[in-house]
Simulated assay, not measured.
Amino acid sequence: MTRSAWLLLFGAASAALIASASALFLGEVMGMTPCTLCWYQRIAMFPLALILGWACMTSDRSGAVYGLLLAVPGLLVAVHHSLLISGLVPQVWAPCGAGSSCLKQDLAWLGGIQLPWLSLLAFALIVALLSLHLKKTSA
C-alpha cells in the first residue's frame, strides 16, 4: 500500500474516531440524549473507528471495503436526518417517539449547529476518503 493510500485510510479512521468520541462526549458528559436517528448513525459510526483503525495498523484493503459498507448507510441516515431538521422532508417521516426529538438537536456552544449536519459531514468525509483509498489500491 502506498503512503498516499494509507494516509487516505488514516484520515477516514481519524474522522470516525473523532466523530465517535464526540458522540460519546455529548451523550455521557454533556447529557444530551440521542434521538432514534442519532442512534442509527452511532450504530454505523462506532464500529467504523475500530474497523478502520485496524485496517490502518494492518494495511488491509478489505477494512476499507467493510468500512464503506457501514459508512454509506450511515451517510444515508444522516442525509435523511439533515433534510428532516431543515424542513425539506415532512415531519411525519421522523421515526422519533416519546424520547428525544429528531427535529431539533442543536449545540449551544457551536452557535446552534444541528448535530445531524456534523454527522453528515463526518460520514461524507469518510465515504469520500474510503472511495479514494479503494481507487488508489485497486491496481
Rank of each mutant, 00 (worst) to 15 (best):
T2R: 13
T2D: 15
L9V: 01
F10Q: 11
G11V: 01
G11R: 04
A13G: 06
A16T: 05
L17W: 01
I18R: 00
A19Q: 06
A19L: 00
A21H: 00
A23G: 12
F25H: 13
F25C: 03
G27E: 13
E28S: 12
M30I: 11
M30T: 10
T33E: 15
P34Q: 08
C35K: 02
C35G: 15
T36N: 08
T36V: 14
Y40D: 11
Y40Q: 12
R42M: 12
R42I: 07
R42A: 15
I43K: 02
I43T: 13
I43E: 08
A44W: 02
A44I: 02
M45K: 02
L48F: 03
L50I: 15
L50Q: 02
L52D: 01
L52N: 01
A55V: 06
C56N: 09
M57I: 14
M57W: 15
T58V: 13
T58H: 14
S59Y: 14
D60V: 00
D60N: 15
R61S: 11
S62Q: 15
A64W: 04
V65Q: 12
G67Q: 06
L69T: 12
L70P: 06
V72N: 02
P73S: 09
P73T: 07
G74Y: 05
L75P: 04
L76W: 05
L76K: 03
V77S: 07
H80Y: 09
H81S: 13
S82H: 06
L84P: 03
L84N: 04
I85R: 08
V89I: 14
Q91D: 11
Q91E: 13
P95H: 12
C96N: 13
C96Q: 14
G97F: 05
S100N: 10
S101K: 06
L103G: 07
L103D: 01
L110N: 06
L110R: 08
G111F: 05
I113H: 03
Q114F: 01
W117L: 12
L121P: 00
I126M: 10
A128I: 05
A128R: 01
K135E: 07
S138P: 02
A139K: 14
A139Y: 10
